[in-house]
Write a protein that binds this DNA or RNA. Structure first.
Lengths: 115, 115
DNA sequence: ATAAACCATGTTGTGCACCACAGAGTCAAC
DNA sequence: GTTGACTCTGTGGTGCACAACATGGTTTAT
């Protein structure tokens, strides 16, 4: 059983983030001492935290992470990750289009100069 | 000289956006009637608005747009746009890396199943 | 002259994912 | 047993780019 500070160092999640994740029921402490409300995390928490850290890297929103976590068997995780990939690929396409548009804008600027 | 509503329709920028742009000195009205504070825009405003609409499409922040506008000759516009392109290209690279990481995560999941 | 449509200012709210603080209680080490 | 490090709760703030009011004055068309 780890207290927040220790668990924070283990996971790389700040204490505030841990509190926030507990608030939104994304990662609740394994045990809360009713006498002082100290929050304790265990190795199970650690595994979940590791997954959350990954999902965060993958640009998951909190809501999406909650959706993943609601399904304890992680049955849908693969599907969701594939969906996420598609979303990212679309974003890449959008950015490429933006680059296209910038190029056109630059081109237009050059033509103006020539006239 | 156009009043906000008309100018809003011409440019596609909402009235609130126009007010906001005036507040942050990004696009100030060509004339303000001191009697009633009505804001009037002219054809010069329109040209600037068109550029702003483009920059917005290019994911420029307000601050960046202000930087562009501070330089009335638009001398640095090309440089800034090229910089912006580089930034977008970096973002694309980041997203591609994210996809890579998701793939690895998925792969790791499959290996776990096999064991 | 009256009603509809327009304009102004000022303030608050939005969404996201936390961060930062204040004030107070608690624990650990020496 | 005292000091320093830790913990809690609650509240407010952050950044971005507006949107959404409320309230009240003005203009335009009939």
């Amino acid at each position: 059983m780890y207290k927040v500070s220790e668990f924070s160092k283990m996971t790389g999640l700040s204490k505030e983030t841990l509190r926030y994740y507990a608030d939104v029921k994304l990662l609740e402490p394994a045990y809360i001492n009713p006498k002082n409300n100290y929050r304790y995390y265990d190795n199970g928490s650690y595994l979940i935290a590791m997954i959350l850290v990954s999902l965060r890297k993958f640009n998951f929103t909190i809501q999406e992470m909650i959706t993943v976590m609601e399904d304890e068997s992680f049955e849908n995780l693969e599907t969701i990750l594939i969906q996420k990939k598609l979303g990212i690929e679309k974003k890449i396409e959008d950015l490429k289009n933006t680059i296209e548009e910038i190029d056109q804008f630059l081109q237009w600027g050059k033509e103006e100069e020539e006239e």
